[in-house]
Write a protein that binds this DNA or RNA. Structure first.
Lengths: 217, 217
DNA sequence: GAATATACGGAGATCGCCTCCGTTTTGGCG
DNA sequence: CGCCAAAACGGAGGCGATCTCCGTATATTC
C-alpha cells in the first residue's frame, strides 16, 4: 500500500488476518485458531483498508477512525474488531511497503556494487515509504521497541536496514559510532522533515546532508 | 520557562498580553488597544502558565487543555480567552527560552573564538530548549512559516540562528548548500529523536552526527 | 459608592474514541 | 434445501476533549 496502488486483496487473502495487537491496552487474548475469515469479513476488511488508505492520505495518520469506518460503509464496531488499535491499521497499510524494503535490501546486498551507493538507495527508498502519509514517520519512530503491533513493521525494517548498513560499514563507508538504529532514526527524521515540504527532492537533499555526517571523517 | 524555573511573572507583567492568534480559526479581531490587564486577569494568566508548564512537562504539549484550566483553578473560558489556541499557550511558555537563545547568539557572535564551536554550542542549546516538553520540537517545526502565533517564536529563533550559522559559513566551516532553515530543521529533528530516548547525552551525540554532515567535505 | 468596562466560569454543543450487545449473515451438515 | 451454531455486523451510547456563549461577578474610574 501507501506508495503502491490500493491493492485491496491482501497477500494471505483467505487466511488469518485479524490478530489483536495484544501489546496494547486491549486485553483480549489472541485469536489462536487462525481459520479463514468469513466472506463478509474479508470484504469488509478490504473496504476498511481502502478507506483508511484514502483517509490517511488526505488527513494523515491522525485522521478520525470513525471517518474511516463511515467511508468504508461499515460500523465502528467492525473497524475495531478488525483493527483494535490505530497502529494495527497503520501496520496493515504499511505491510506491503515493509516487505518491499526487505526485498530491496536483499537485492542490493546480493548484487555487487558500491555499498555506499546501495546504502543511499535503500535509505532513500525508506524515506519515501515513510512519507506515504503525514504522521507516518512519527508513528514509526514512536512504535519502535514498544511492543505495539506497528513495532513488528519497525523490527522488520530494522533487519532489512541492518544488512545494507553493515555492508557499508564493512567497506569503511560508515563511521563506527553510528548504529543501525541511528541510521534508521535519522532517515525517519528526514522523512519527518520532508513531509511538510512540497519540494519533491527535499528527501534526497536532506538525506544526503545527514548521510555525509554518517560517513567516517 | 521550560528549562528555567516557572517564572510566573511575565516580562511585561503590567502591559499587553493576550493578542489573539488571528492567523488561526479564531476570527475575532485583535484587541487593538493594549491597555494593562486587570489584576485578576494578570493573576489568572500567571496561574495558567504555571499550570500549563507543569501539565506539559508531565504529559507533553498534547495534554488536555481542560486539565490545564482545572489545575490552574480557572474555568475553561478563562483559559481560551487568554490563549485562544494551544499554540498561543506554547508560545508564551517558550518565550523566555527564545529570548535566551537570541541573547546567546549575540554573545557567541560578539566574542572572538571558533565559529564552528560557537555554532555547535548554540545548536546544542537550541536542542535542549526544544526538548523542554515532549512534542515541542514537532510543534515548532509545524508552526514554522504558518502564520500561527508560535511562528513568531520560530522566526525569532531563526534570526538568532542565522547569525551563528552565517558566521560559521563565512569561516568555511559549513557547506554552502545547507541553509539556515536546514540547520535549524535538522537540529529540531535531533530534538525530536532525542526526546524519546532517556540517554542524557543523546542530544549531543546525534547533533554531532548531523553537524558533521553539515560541514564542507 | 455607583457605573461601566472587563473578566470570569461553567454548562453544553460537537466530535472522536471505543465497547457492548442485540441482530444479521455465513458456512457446514443432515 | 433448510436449519443451526458460530462468526461477524452495526450503531447506540459512555467518556473525555475542544471550544463557545452568555449570565454573573469583579476591578477600575470618577
Amino acid at each position: 500500500m501507501a506508495t503502491t496502488k490500493p491493492e485491496v486483496t491482501e497477500p494471505g487473502s483467505g487466511r488469518v488476518a485479524v490478530r489483536g495487537a495484544d501489546g496494547g491496552a486491549h486485553g483480549s487474548a489472541d485469536r489462536s485458531a487462525d481459520r479463514p475469515l468469513r466472506a463478509d469479513a474479508r470484504r469488509n476488511r478490504a473496504r476498511l483498508l481502502e478507506a483508511a488508505h484514502a483517509v490517511f492520505r488526505e488527513r494523515g495518520t491522525d485522521a478520525s477512525l470513525d471517518e474511516v469506518a463511515r467511508r468504508a460503509g461499515v460500523g465502528a464496531g467492525t473497524l475495531y474488531r478488525h483493527f483494535p488499535t490505530r497502529d494495527d491499521l497503520v501496520e496493515a497499510l504499511v505491510r506491503a511497503d515493509v516487505d518491499q524494503l526487505a526485498q530491496l535490501s536483499r537485492d542490493l546486498t546480493a548484487a555487487p556494487g558500491d555499498p555506499d551507493a546501495a546504502l543511499r538507495t535503500w535509505l532513500l527508498a525508506f524515506v519515501r515509504h515513510a512519507m506515504a502519509f503525514r504522521g507516518l514517520a512519527e508513528a514509526l519512530v514512536a512504535a519502535a521497541g514498544s511492543g505495539t503491533c506497528l513495532d513488528r513493521a519497525c523490527h522488520d525494517t530494522e533487519v532489512a536496514a541492518a544488512a545494507v548498513v553493515e555492508r557499508a560499514r564493512a567497506a569503511g563507508r560508515l563511521r563506527p559510532d553510528a548504529s543501525v538504529q541511528d541510521t534508521l532514526n535519522l532517515a525517519a527524521a528526514v522523512a519527518w522533515l520532508a513531509e511538510r515540504d512540497d519540494d519533491p527532492d527535499a528527501p534526497a537533499r536532506l538525506l544526503d546532508l545527514v548521510l555525509d555526517g554518517l560517513r567516517p571523517s
